[in-house]
Structure formats: C-alpha cells, structure tokens
Design a binder for these strands. Structure first.
Length: 779
DNA sequence: GCCTGATTTCTACCA
DNA sequence: ACTGGTAGAAATCAGGCG
C-alpha cells in the first residue's frame, strides 16, 4: 500500500545488527506515523590514488575483512572531486557509527588517497541519497507493522521503497506546544543541582493554557505533571525562546537529579543534545525561536519581549517585565508571586505568537536546505548553505570535500565611494540585482572550474577575473553556477506563482516564506565561498567574485559620468546618482550589454543626507519615511535617548528642512534629560560580549559589568548583551558602568549622556549645517 | 609624573 | 560558527616636557 506523509523528524537506530531510518510524519487524515526504512546501507568513499588499479585496492581491503566484521560491501565507483573524475571505492558498512573508525583504518591501505563522506551522519545520508526533504510531503510504498516498539504514533509502517517527494506546498495542521520556564535561585543564575524549576507555562495552538507551579519550591510533581501534559497533548512542534540553550538543558538536568523521567518524546526517551547544540525530541521538532531571530536585524537586543514587540505579537508597553535579578524576590514574596506567574504566562503567549510569525520561514528553510526543522534554526548560515550544496553534489556525483583546517589569508572585497557630504535632492539609487550570485553564475566562478596558475587554458576557454586574473573554465557549467541557477529558477518560479494569490491567503504566505528562504541561501553563497571553514572553500573563487563586483560598479560609475550623471555615493553593488531617468535608462542598458548584469533604480530619494563618512547616511523616502543607514540611530550600542534624538533631528532636517528647528528640539530634549524626564530605559547602553571576559586585552564598560555580574553568581557567555548605564563618580568610564538592572536613576551621570551620547548623535547631523555643539546646549 | 597625539581594541554596521 | 570594508568611542601606548 501507499502512504503519503509530511516529514517532521528523522533519526536512525541500529537494531538486530541492521541500521534503519525512522521517518516521523503526519498524514492527511491527521494521523501521526512512523515510517521505518531499512533499505539504505551506510557508506563512505575511499579515493583511489591516481594510476592505481581500484580493483587491487578492493582486494587489499578484502584481505582485511576478517578484522572488519561489519564491512558489508565494496564497490568501485566513478565520482568527481572538484570537477575532476576520480576512482573511488564505496565502502558500505553495517553499523553507521563505525564509518569514521573504518574510514580511518582503511585510509591506510596502499593505493588509497583519502576517505570521503565518513563524517556524514546516516540520517542525513538517507535524506540526501533518497532526495527526501524535511517539512515536505512524500509518498512511500509501505506495509503496516505492529507498534511493538511502543512509539507514540497512530501507525507504524515499514517502507518497501524509499519515499518520493510529492509536490504539495502546504504543511498539514500541526499541534504546537509553547513553553517558558522560571527557575528559582536566591542569588545568581539558577543551578539545576541546587535550584528548582518553579514555573512552567505552557500553551497550545488548540487553545490550551496551563501553568505548572512548584509547591514550596518542590518541583518533582511539576516536572511529572509537565511531562504528562506534553505526552497527552502530543505536540508535533515544541516551541520556546532560547530553550535549546537554557530551559531544556535545565529541565533535563533537574529531572535527572530528581529521577523523574522527562519522557516527552515519541520514542520513550528523553530529549538529547544534538549536532548543532540544539535539543532534539525524537518524533517531534523542538524549536528555539531565538535561533531565527537573526532574521530580524532591526531587533538589536534579541529578548523574547523585543522580538514579540517587533512582530506585533505583544507590545512592550503592555508587558509586565521582570528582570532576571528580580525573579527571586517575586517568587519569595507571596504578594508579588502572581506578577511572576503573569510574566511567565505572557512569555509563553509571546512564544506562541513569535512561532506563528516565523514558522513559515523555518519550515521552508528546512525543506529547501534539507536539514530537519529542529536542526535548521540551530545551524549557522554557512552550514545551511553547505547542506544545500551537499544535496546538489550528490545529484551530480561530486564527492563532498572534507572539512579541514586551512590557512586564512584575507583578500580584497568590495568598493565603497567617498560620499559628498550634505543634502542632495532627487537622488536615485541604482542597484545590481543579486550581484555576486549573478557574477558567479555568469563567469562560471566555482571551486571546480578554477584553473590554477601554471595550468594551460582548457580548450573551451576561460573567464579571467579583472585585477586578480584568476581563471575559470567557460565550460562545463560549474558546481556553484548550477546550484545558483537552480536557486534563481526556484525563486523566479515561486515569485511568479505568488502573483496568483491574495497577499493574505495561506498560499501566498507559504510561497512568500519560500522565496525568502531561497533568497537567504542565494545571498549567503558568496560569503560561503569566502569562508575558510567551508568544505568547498577556494580562495580565488571569492576573490574573483569580489574583483568582478568592483569591475561592475566601476563601469557603472564610468558610464554614468559619460552620460553626464552625477555620482554622489556608492557601496558594493549600488550607485547613487542624480535622478535623471533617461540617462539612468541608458546606463542600465549599457551595463546590461557590457556585463550581462541587471542594474536598475531601486529607490529614489527626494532628499538624502550624507555625512562625511562612508556607510552612514539617511534618505528621505517619497512617502516621508526615513531610511537611516549606519548612523547612531540604527546602532544597538547607543542609548535610545541618543538614537531618538538623532532620528528626530533627521526628520526635521530632511522633511522640514529646518536645522534651527532641529537644534531647538535638541536643546529641549537635553533640558528634559537633565530634569530626568527621559525614561531610565532610554539611557541603557547594550553591548555584546564577543569573547570570554578573561580574553579582553583592555578594560571596557560592558566587560566590567559582566565581571561584576559574574562575581554575583550570574553565568554569562559569549553573545550575551550587557545592558548598562553610566553613573556619577570619578575615574574611567569603565569604572562608572553599572548593570542596568542593578543601578537606579539617581546614580546616573546625566552629563555623560548629554556630552557623550545625545550631543554627538545630534551633532553628527547638525554639524553639516554649521550648528555647533555649544548651540545645542540649552541656554 | 603628566599631557597629548597616535595607535590599538572593541563593537556594530553596510553591502 | 558566511565575506571584506568601515566608523567611531574608549583604552592604552609612546614620547615630549618639566
């Protein structure tokens, strides 16, 4: 019989000496199923030395067979490595966990150059080899089996054939459970060995809301009740915020200590930490939404409340927020405990809202790159690109290069023009459409088409990069080139289908999420190519793409000037020119002919203001809104007070064209600030720890604050944002920084905020109009 | 030892 | 833990001065 299912999760098991893949899915009738497939044997490759007879290598390995009991098969195969044909021995092995060990051992065989793909996990191997993608529909020939495993699904199937993809864009209705957790520690970061979980707030997309609250800091019953709740609801998705890093590890450690089985998965086991440091719940997808918050660069401090506010899930002003340092007092005080309960419940509501906003993108990204839903968020951008590449490599018989340490040598990147400071009227921004991907596509820039120095030109000819002179074969089409054309084709297809639907329809939202996912991967391809950690890293590839990019923008500038278009600024793939449509059309046309790249006006600013610095400007949009770029107003490491003032100054200067009015506004603001009428939170400065505190070479405010907090028992790690205020007193700035949650308004050094935050931010703009800092101070 | 300009360190941004 | 190019604040260094 045939079964159709949407793939939610995948794992593998070794049972009765045979590996099997477990595909957890959801069917049309709402049944949750487990499809077990034993058809694919794990394997790796051994590349055979050039000039060596592969059969001889096979025989040598055969001779070792007695000592390799789980070796299942040897086959000589033709593959490609960086585009060149190679002979390899495909070694199949019964136990997927022995691939690495066997590969190491057999690599020493005479005539073997090196092993390949022994580091690809069996479950990924299965998905890739069968072209099975998570978060997508598949049909499979199956026979129903009895649920002797005790897995929590409606049906268990044995696959008779590998699943085949079915074109169906929408996900089935999923059961989603959201959670947030509060732990209690009298002081500092809670420790599971010592401190209880006191509140677990859950919510479901079936409308359920519940709180599990510890009785007198006894959390055994709470953990048991929570576990039971999860099992009873039987979610497909478990969502939280930062749960991979904090809440799940805590719940696990705590339940281990109390000997409570946290059996929340579909396979009678506990959650476990998986490849990308995320927590995996077998048969479900556990998502930490913080992992997807990187897609929202507008949100600078990525707390749940900020993300929820940005997405319109729950407004910050409406929230009751409790800082970590204030949690113990709220739990201890029966009068304040209800506030803590409300805070926790709101967190879970925010989690559910954020999940709704982000799931479309997450599932599309998962199906596109082929990583299981719970992996894809946790995987860094480079790995997302790489898994997409690995999938494509399999299709063309390209061996997946080993990841290895390589020397890092920087190369020249993009070109940035010196802006002409001041206000310019009616400026058009000419943008290259997907510049780097299109360059790589057009010039066939790829790891496998690169012709190293010393090698003769191939018969089909080469494309030679300007300046750096790297050469790339014109044919056949390279790996990157084919992958990019595939991505571009998908995006064009999705975008054309998009037109048939209403923007609010489900179909539209699904397709829109898909085109965004494709865009993210496409745009990351150039960065991937220049990443030393990449499996397909070849420095000249990135270097050549950058050189062609410079060539493109330089030609655009030249042509613009030739037709008499004034160029006022440019950066990487954009050129800012006077808005003269006819001349622009001409430039665009000529670039199209000359470089086969598309360049066209993206926006037209009725007015745009440049500072004397590159990468910092502000454009007024036709609808009156501002595009603030690079300035303090869009930076996360300036106090909101300074950012607000600067933004307002820009508005007044660009909309009303009145530097005087703007100066008056600044004077008024500074008097308000001095009168302490500005909210305290607008004085908090946020900076991230980019390395462990002990590695800093100099003393800085945020690191000093981090050290203080750590002394108080708070665990901090790389990436954490430290919020601090500057307080009055003598000494260096770093001596006057206090954690925002531990300082009070009275301590704040207003003069610092006037002279080092608000004034510089305002003056950055107003100095262009001859307004001095003295003139910005209230009289 | 103090002052000042130059250099280094650091973060976050742009494309 | 995708790239290089960039700004700007603050810390720190280095050298002159007395």
């Amino acid at each position: 019989m045939k079964a159709e299912f949407w793939l939610l999760d995948v794992n593998y098991e070794v049972r009765d000496h045979g590996p099997e893949v477990w595909l957890w899915g959801i069917q049309d009738d709402g049944k949750r199923v487990l499809v077990i497939d034993r058809s694919l044997s794990p394997y790796f490759y051994l590349q055979v030395d050039e000039g060596e007879d592969p059969k001889a290598v096979v025989e040598r390995i055969e001779a070792l067979r007695a000592s390799l009991p789980l070796l299942a098969g040897l086959e000589v195969v033709d593959r490609k490595y960086f585009g060149r044909p190679v002979k390899a021995v495909k070694v199949t092995c019964q136990d997927p966990d022995l691939l690495d060990k066997y590969a190491k051992r057999l690599s020493k065989t005479q005539g073997v150059k090196r092993p390949f793909e022994e580091d690809i996990r069996y479950s990924m191997r299965y998905l890739i080899d069968n072209d099975v993608a998570p978060c997508a529909w598949h049909e499979v020939e199956v026979e129903e089996a009895e649920n002797t495993l005790g897995v929590r699904v409606d049906r268990v199937y044995l696959a008779r054939s590998p699943p085949r993809g079915v074109e169906r864009p929408e996900a089935p209705p999923l059961r989603i459970l959201g959670l947030s957790v509060v732990c209690y520690s009298p002081r500092g970061t809670p420790k599971p060995s010592r401190d209880p979980v006191v509140i677990v707030s859950v919510a479901t997309n079936a409308g359920g809301e519940k709180q599990f609250v510890a009785r007198d800091s006894e959390d055994r019953e709470l953990l048991e009740a929570f576990t039971k709740y999860v099992r009873d609801f039987d979610p497909d998705l478990i969502v939280g915020y930062g749960t991979n890093r904090t809440e799940w590890p805590y719940l696990l450690a705590r339940s281990q200590k109390l000997k409570v089985g946290l059996y929340v998965d579909r396979a009678k086991a506990e959650p476990h930490t998986s490849v990308y440091g995320h927590v995996s719940v077998t048969g479900r997808a556990n998502l930490g939404l913080l992992d997807f918050a990187d897609e929202l660069p507008e949100v600078k401090v990525k707390t749940l409340e900020n993300v929820a506010d940005f997405l319109g899930v729950m407004r910050l002003e409406q929230r009751l927020l409790i800082e970590d340092v204030d949690i113990p007092a709220h739990w201890e005080d029966p009068g304040k405990r209800p506030e803590l309960l409300r805070f926790s419940a709101e967190n879970t509501r925010c989690v559910m809202g954020v999940a709704e906003a982000m799931l479309g993108f997450a599932t599309q990204l998962s199906s596109l790159v082929g990583l299981p839903l719970d992996h894809v968020g946790a995987a860094a951008v480079g790995f997302r690109v790489e898994w997409f590449l690995i999938r494509q490599a399999q299709k063309i018989g390209e061996l997946v290069p080993a990841r290895g340490p390589r020397p890092y040598i920087p190369y020249a990147g993009a070109l940035v023009l010196e802006p002409k400071p001041g206000v310019h009227e009616d400026i058009a921004v000419l943008d290259f459409k997907a510049m780097y991907p299109n360059i790589m596509l057009l010039k066939n820039v790829s790891p496998d088409t690169y012709v190293p120095p010393g090698e003769p030109d191939p018969p089909g000819g080469v494309n030679v990069a300007p300046e750096v002179k790297h050469r790339f074969r014109v044919e056949p089409q390279g790996f990157y080139s084919s992958v990019l054309s595939c991505l571009i084709a998908i995006r064009d297809d999705v975008r054309s289908r998009l037109k048939a639907f209403e923007p609010r329809s489900t179909e539209y939202r699904v397709l829109d999420a898909r085109q965004k996912a494709v865009k993210v991967i496409t745009n990351a391809s150039y960065g991937y190519a220049g990443w030393v950690g990449a499996r397909w890293y070849v420095k000249p590839v990135a270097e050549a793409a950058a050189a062609w990019g410079r060539h493109a923008i330089l030609n655009t500038i030249r042509l613009a000037r030739e037709v008499g278009l004034e160029v006022v600024y440019g950066d990487t793939d954009s050129v800012f020119v006077k808005n003269e449509p006819e001349k622009i059309r001409k430039v665009s046309e000529e670039i199209g002919e000359l470089l086969q790249l598309e360049v066209k006006p993206d926006v037209v600013y009725p007015r745009v203001l440049f500072t004397e610095a590159k990468k910092r400007y502000c454009g007024l949009l036709p609808d009156g809104r501002l595009d603030v770029v690079g300035l303090e107003a869009v930076r996360g490491d300036w106090a909101a007070a300074a950012k607000r003032v600067q933004e307002r100054v820009l508005e007044i200067v660009l909309r009303d064209r009145s530097p005087d009015k703007a100066a008056e506004f600044v004077r008024q603001y500074i008097s308000d600030l001095r009168a302490r009428k500005v909210p305290y939170r607008d004085l908090v400065i946020w900076k991230a720890l980019t390395m462990p505190v002990e590695e800093y070479a100099v003393r800085t405010a945020h690191v000093e604050v981090a050290k203080t907090l750590m002394k108080e028992g708070w665990d901090l790690s790389v990436g954490d944002k430290m919020g601090y205020v500057i307080v009055r007193g003598p000494g260096r700035l770093y001596e006057k920084a206090r954690a925002h949650a531990l300082a009070s308004y009275e301590d704040v050094d207003i003069d610092y905020y006037v002279s080092n935050q608000v004034l510089p931010a305002a003056s950055r703009i107003l100095s262009l109009f001859g307004v001095t800092e003295e003139e910005l101070l209230p009289s």
